[in-house]
Amino acid sequence: MKNIITAFALSIGMMTSGLVQSAYPDGPVTIVVPYSPSGNTDVFVRHVAPYLEKIWGQTVVIDNKPGGGSMVGTAYVANAKPDGKTFLVTTSAFVTAPAVQLDLPFDSRKDLIPVANVGYVSYILVTNANSGFKNLQEFVAASKDSPKFAATAGLGTTTHFAIEQFAAASGAKVDVVHYKGGGPAVVSIMNGEADIYGSSVSSAGKNLKAGKIRPLAVLGDERIKALPEVPSTRELGYPSTEIKQWVGVFAPAGTDPAIIKKLNADINTVLRDEKLIAKLTPLDWTLEQSTPGGFAKQVDVELTKWKRLAAEKGIKK
């Protein structure tokens, strides 16, 4: 008898998931962005949302829930109903912030399912144009004589781990100083308060072009299109210093796997759109095609990696 009930329940489950696949979504979908309106991630989502609306024939609501270095919005989605109507679009803060915020009210691995990695921006090490460091080797050597100050856009942000990882790999001696966001961090390089900053290209933007700050290297294995003349850290002899800030989509744990699959497929479709690519490339976005499984593996590896680095560096005791 029990078996029959189980079988019955299972078959209903399968039927509904099959139904879901064809009819999903049957109502408005909310995308939670754990950052303020008009920030990088928000702008990205606002570019993408109309395309999803077109595919789904449903309204897509963008709900900004900023705070706690993206962890407030992330926690909100972790506790949301897994009905396929609420998703999170966040950055690699998803994997870096838990390394320093130890008492989060959710489990990054268990309470959220990675759905898709949509793309990434690269990081460059920058210094003041008048700093006298002509290249990265000079900076590393000088820092060993007298420690230098490294700016970050905040504790536990990607910019923070970018510099920590580089320092660990290169042996450069830096003390990190946290600023509130990328803007003030760039200003600190311009007025000479801090010596080096691992910045995204867009954040260094105008001042880079104006020649007020100098790019020393791209943190990665390869050069980037936006700055073809800047060497990568691997070329300069500092391997395993690559870091990208990615943007990814997550769903609350318990969401129907069929929905996850459909969502991933729809997002991939949108990201292949030529018009969208043309709009986002100047903002230094590299768009990607991903699978839920592949992204989950990446998230798992990075969660472990940054946690270990934070422990080694004694960032959070």
Partner: peptide
């Protein structure tokens, strides 16, 4: 700040 603009001396040029 709510709109993600850092107030400060660089605001006028940015």
């Amino acid at each position: 700040m709510i709109h993600g603009i850092a107030p400060g001396p660089s605001m006028i040029t940015d």
